[in-house]
């Protein structure tokens, strides 16, 4: 139908690794992500507000972390995948100058629902685990 393809449920196996995604954390991404998710908490766009909390600079909001996690999975699965669940544990903040590397692995398949669970970890190169969790998607089941 187009240049976009979506994985079939049958083609995915427990243990499959997703291609890693390295994301440069810039002030632009942090502020842009906060605005795009309508999160105007000053700590996500105002350096002095962030510094008042003890951090050296603005930090990424949760909705952007959720967005990057969902993008990471659908980049791999293709656009017909339906996201069912994003389950995140939050870790160290993402600040400008860091690089977050997201990796993932298929951990479970449920034949009756066609759902696939993917364990996802986003680690930044300075403070380590930024987010960790499970994304559940439904994939097309017919050939």
């Amino acid at each position: 139908m187009s240049e976009y393809t979506t994985l079939n449920y049958a083609d995915v196996h427990v243990g499959d690794k997703l291609p890693e995604l390295a994301i440069d954390i810039t002030t632009g991404l942090i502020v842009g992500g906060a605005m795009a998710t309508r999160d105007y908490e000053p700590v996500h766009h105002d350096k002095s507000a962030a510094q008042a909390t003890g951090l050296p600079d603005v930090f990424m909001n949760i909705l952007t972390s959720q967005g990057l996690m969902s993008r990471f999975v659908t980049d791999w699965s293709g656009p017909e995948a339906v996201i069912r669940k994003l389950d995140l544990k939050l870790g160290a903040p993402n600040l400008p100058g860091m690089v977050m590397t997201i990796s993932g692995e298929v951990t479970d398949k449920d034949d009756s629902s066609g759902q696939v669970s993917i364990a996802v970890v986003g680690e930044n190169n300075i403070w380590g685990m930024h987010m960790q969790g499970t994304v559940t998607i439904a994939l097309p089941q017919e050939a």
Binding site: G32, G33, A36, T37
Partner: peptide
């Protein structure tokens, strides 16, 4: 949103 996330999902 898609621009900020770099998400090209059609």
């Amino acid at each position: 949103w898609a621009e900020a996330m770099g998400d090209t999902n059609p």
